[in-house]
């Protein structure tokens, strides 16, 4: 469903992604873990072309995103309209929720349905309400984001992405900005999504979630995937010293 091949990206002279290969199958949950600055968020943002990659290929259901390879072998930017159409199929959830503060929870979810899917007001509101119900926030439909907790805001953001009926979902550190006691409610929603067979690519520091929900884990360090496999492998059998060191630090910090 998602195929990445030799993806490279630099910010100026600083290489962030140095040849990433990764594939995510339909209904698979893949977690990207790794130290800060390793390039995992950038990689995720390249998948819906929020961040343009420099070279390599990212294909969604076989289709290259962001670029068009021409017959003469050169590569040009994809038409923005086509890119928009591709993005509609890819849900994204951000670290800082990025809700629109001037719209209610219901408005946030209904807005893309109205503007992008072209639904009538009534229909958009009905579908938005159904999505809010699904994330357990039907009672907060009329509330503005400022009146919601971080966990509630993130659940609204998930509902907003889901309402578009995407074929896959990208999560960029969805719980990193939350107070610890609010992390659980967001992870629960993500777990139920995974259980329903949603294809998910998740950048996270929640090792518990990665261990229990992910089908596969990719460990990124300095712009490369240095280890990849089922959670049991990456967490317990990795031969990579960098991975072991990272997980050790994590264990030390969380063992109290």
């Amino acid at each position: 469903m998602i195929e990445l091949a030799k993806v490279m990206k630099s910010f100026g002279a600083h290489p962030v992604l140095r040849g990433v290969d990764l594939s995510v199958q339909r209904s698979e949950v893949v977690c990207l873990i790794g130290p800060s600055g390793s390039g995992k968020s950038t990689l995720l943002r390249c998948v819906n072309f929020l961040e343009p990659y420099d070279s390599g290929e990212i294909r969604i259901d076989g289709r290259l995103i962001g670029y068009e390879d021409k017959r003469d072998g050169t590569r040009g930017r994809m038409r923005t309209r086509t890119l928009r159409e591709m993005r509609r199929e890819i849900g994204m959830v951000f670290q800082h929720f990025n809700l629109w503060p001037h719209m209610t929870a219901l408005g946030n979810v209904a807005e893309p349905l109205r503007r992008v899917r072209g639904l009538a007001m009534r229909e958009a509101a009905d579908r938005a309400m159904a999505m809010l119900t699904r994330v357990g926030l039907a009672a907060k439909a009329g509330a503005y984001p400022s009146r919601l907790s971080g966990g509630q805001q993130q659940r609204v953001a998930i509902a907003r992405a889901l309402a578009m009926q995407p074929r896959l979902m990208l999560f960029d550190e969805p719980t990193s900005a939350l107070d610890p006691e609010l992390v659980g409610e967001v992870l629960e929603v993500m777990k139920s999504l995974a259980a329903e067979g949603m294809t998910m690519l998740v950048v996270t520091h929640e090792m518990g979630f990665a261990a229990h929900v992910a089908g596969r884990i990719a460990f990124i360090d300095e712009g490369r995937i240095i280890d990849e496999g089922p959670p049991a492998h990456v967490f317990h059998e990795s031969a990579e010293p960098r991975v072991r060191q990272f997980l050790q630090t994590y264990h030390d910090r969380n063992a109290f």
Partner: peptide
């Protein structure tokens, strides 16, 4: 905030809607 615009872009909103809404 850039994030609010990114949210609009990521759902595939057209530039005119991103501007107006």
């Amino acid at each position: 905030p850039a994030g609010q615009i990114e949210a609009a872009v990521s759902v595939g909103m057209a530039p005119i809607d991103t501007m107006m809404r």
